[in-house]
Design a protein around this nucleic acid. Sequence first.
DNA 1: CCTACCTATGTGATCGATCACATTAATGAT
DNA 2: ATCATTAATGTGATCGATCACATAGGTAGG
Lengths: 346, 346
Amino acid sequence: MTSELQPHGPASAAPVVGAKARAASVFDVARLAGVSHQTVSRVLNDHPSLRPATRQKVLDAMKELSYRPNAAARTLSSSRSRMIGILSTSTGQYGPAASVAALEVAARARGYSVTIANADGLDPRSVQAAISHLAELSAEGVVVVAPQTRVLEALSDLSFGMPFVTLQELATDAERSRPLDQVVGARMAVSHLASLGHRRIGHLAGPADWLDAAQRLTGYTDELDARAIDFRAVVNGDWSAASGHRAAGELIAHGVTAIFAGNDQMALGALKAASEADIAVPGELSIVGFDDVPEAAFYSPALTTVRQDFAEAGRRAVALLLGESSVPPSVEPELVVRRSTAAPVA
Amino acid sequence: MTSELQPHGPASAAPVVGAKARAASVFDVARLAGVSHQTVSRVLNDHPSLRPATRQKVLDAMKELSYRPNAAARTLSSSRSRMIGILSTSTGQYGPAASVAALEVAARARGYSVTIANADGLDPRSVQAAISHLAELSAEGVVVVAPQTRVLEALSDLSFGMPFVTLQELATDAERSRPLDQVVGARMAVSHLASLGHRRIGHLAGPADWLDAAQRLTGYTDELDARAIDFRAVVNGDWSAASGHRAAGELIAHGVTAIFAGNDQMALGALKAASEADIAVPGELSIVGFDDVPEAAFYSPALTTVRQDFAEAGRRAVALLLGESSVPPSVEPELVVRRSTAAPVA
DNA sequence: CCTACCTATGTGATCGATCACATTAATGAT
DNA sequence: ATCATTAATGTGATCGATCACATAGGTAGG
């Protein structure tokens, strides 16, 4: 121990057993390996001009000391935080959670960390607090999960220079010309119903200020437009089964023969509403969901829905944010036909 | 701009418009406020002996420069990261996701950040990688979400001195004497079935190496023991509806009149299996779930289940980890009786 | 054979905050 | 009226890494 000077903190003066030793630093490794601290740094950063023997000496020293680079020091000196922030408002929903998990794995594979910041309230203040928090961590980018328009606005107002993407983002410019996946997915759902012969198709939409809801609504109207079907009936829910249950009643009152729900939870609510009203599904009413949550196949009847690849969306978000050239292609949504849809009676 | 010396990095030589200005530091604030950097630091840390006028001057300067403390610098110099790590394996499940969201809010309220690290695989290597990652960020503590025993073992082996808790943890020593919530909850479920007259109650358990599964299983056997009911039938699932569907068949083959499922998803699978086998629920078979996911009330029939307060668990985890004296009391689980349970036929 | 250049490594400054300690002014106690 | 004590603030070192630049040893070209 060549501690000539006592630095701040009650650093152990003597090598007391059990005293919590300061974690090894580059200097410790350097000393043990008989090189300079900079060489250690070079090993850490895979510098090309390093003799293999030297690298090995350093690696051995690292293992010996069970060295672990200090992320904070790294961030400070390089002014790169290698940190991605997640700005979220949706708590406990399947889709977002699945995306975030995949996103984190993808980010870590690239040496990035992921922090989350939930805007618990809908008020601008809580959104602001969350963004501000991410800024203090000098997040290099932000992924907005469950993007309401208001959140995106707040973010562009005060993003403090942090780039951001949403999970809905498109990948390459090549793909930029084609319609958004969620629009496509919604059209598939509506197309399926129309093909079965339905002409009175209602839409159980998500909250109006959600991007996803807007995109799915667009798909709904686009497809009906394309088929020159005039009938429209849209009721907004809040993604919950309870809201779907409520809203389905309204839609039924409008005389729909089929319902396209903005997500599977609301579809479940609709299923329940139909069963309570003794309306047979799919006999008298067809219902299509969106997302294909793992439970959808076990609803009664098994739900016809549109499958999304949430995990892939998370991975794409990372690639996009990091400006990678090879962004995985967005996988097209897939219509999963189960038992909740059939031709209309009349 | 008094940049007398060019520091490292291609810092703009001239004040070019649009050049990304270095963010303001304590020194910038200090200069503008006419105080020393240390005084600025004192304002940041709410030091008691500060003249109100001085504090105000500094605060004004901060606002003027839109100063934002640099978390990395703070961490480095204080050797306190103010960072809590989430070690997770469950992707996209309702309960964990809800807990994590609440946890994050609670942590941020205390000035802490939350990073996540998913052990995507079950293999020890990926668990190790996740833990190691959290260690590099010098996380001050780890909350294990969805704790499999193997994860906990790995963590105690190489936690690098980071304390950790699980969401299942008990709070105070005062509470330490009473049984775990999940055991209590499971007993409530079984008790409910037994009270209805069931004697052949099967358990659709979670994966054997999950703490939650183990606790719920304990509750099941404890309650049956207490009631001197000999019949036992346990089949393990993997929390998914699909596994519940599969396992329910086995349980039915054992001649059960009621099933206590380890979570609502598996209960849904069981519901489906019953309906496919033309077994009336609750007429011929009663089913109880666990968790009370938001959709449970909309299953067919509406599921009787045990409600857990996931958000509160997340908050408690933070308090516990931070060694706070006033840990919110664990709220006892609640039995929610709906339509999937009734007295047995015979 | 000497300059040119690349390879491999070392030295000291730097990032932005806190820490330890020094200093000065104001308040009390004797 | 004098010294001890506390309040309010300043100075310089420090955390652990990277950055910029310097230096020593090879290899190559003219």
